[in-house]
């Protein structure tokens, strides 16, 4: 009779042993908030589940001189409440704090969010704006570092090999000159799947008034989140002003038009993205700019 085997490694060495024997019917279980639902929906009754939850070394957020290392099993709740992430990369903190419900955030992990590769995964856009790296280990014990884009394939698929598991997400500690924010548009205030989400990371010049570098990533507008060159170009070299906000909105609309024109969701998303733009703009630069200057 077909059966489902569960393996429970408690260290990276044991994980490698498990991965060695992995095949196409092997599934990695972290928080399970996506996997269990997918297994039920896909009617998977047999195969092997590697339950990562016993590997305690993957449950920590470590600070190094230049990087924060987020263990694969760190939950969205842990990220939402972590002071270091709030200090060095608020966009990720904001994204994690808006994933699902409290219960989902208590179980769901950052690595799971990446590996699940949903088009509207909340943590992917902020990670894409930074030079975050995904560290993986495989059945041979080899450790690799990749960009998010090289891991997320999209529409629920990833590029990981069957014998490969994410073990860490490494994000750079961004200095004071960097500002980041995340925005999300769902169908209600909380416990909602993004209709659009996005993150913006900017590096300000020494005056603190002009954008030197900009990184913009948008989700739920295609099979996976992507960097928007159109929007980034519109921000680089600009001063913080009301005009900049309008440019941001217009470029986002342009990007939405390019991405999903013709789809039934297009007319709404091209309008509503202005709301998300305003949320992000205010989080980045404060509400003063929009209030003080007149039209």
């Amino acid at each position: 009779m077909e059966s489902l085997v569960v393996e429970t490694p408690e260290s990276l060495d044991e994980l490698v042993e498990c991965l060695k024997r992995a095949d196409k019917n092997t599934y990695l279980l972290a928080g399970g908030t996506d996997l269990i639902i997918r297994m039920r929906r896909s009617k998977i009754y047999s195969g092997k589940v590697i339950d990562l939850s016993g590997i305690n070394e993957l449950k920590k957020i470590k600070e190094e001189s230049k990087y924060l290392r987020i263990g694969a099993l760190v939950t969205h709740s842990m990220i939402s409440e972590n002071d270091k992430i709030k200090e060095f990369f608020p966009a990720l903190m904001e994204a994690s704090s808006q994933v699902g419900s409290t219960q989902i955030r208590n179980r769901g992990t950052i690595a799971g969010n990446i590996a699940n590769s949903s088009p509207c995964a909340d943590t992917v856009p902020p990670l894409m704006t930074s030079s975050a790296k995904v560290r993986t280990i495989n059945g041979k014990g080899e450790i690799k570092e990749r960009d998010i884009d090289e891991v997320v394939k999209g529409s629920g698929f990833n590029y990981l090999q069957k014998d490969e598991a994410i073990i860490e997400i490494i994000i750079p500690k961004l200095g004071n000159e960097y500002l980041s924010a995340f925005g999300k548009l769902g169908s209600r205030t909380a416990v909602t799947i993004a209709k659009i989400n996005g993150a913006i990371l900017v590096k300000m010049d020494s005056t603190g008034k002009k954008i030197k570098k900009a990184y913009v990533s948008l989700g739920a507008l295609g099979p996976k989140a992507f960097r928007s060159k159109i929007v980034e170009d519109r921000l680089i070299g600009k001063e913080i002003s009301r005009q900049l906000f309008h440019d941001l909105c217009n470029s986002l609309i342009e990007q939405v038009d390019l991405a999903i024109k013709g789809r039934s969701s297009h007319p709404y998303k091209r309008e509503a993205i202005k709301g998300m733009a305003q949320d992000i703009f205010i989080r980045l630069f404060g509400s003063g700019v929009l209030e003080n200057e007149k039209k």
């Binding site: 548009l185 209600r188 205030t189 509503a272 202005k274 709301g275 998300m276």
Partner: peptide, 9 residues
Amino acid sequence: IDTLTGLVR
């Protein structure tokens, strides 16, 4: 009503 997103509370 959020007139940008259409969300109502």
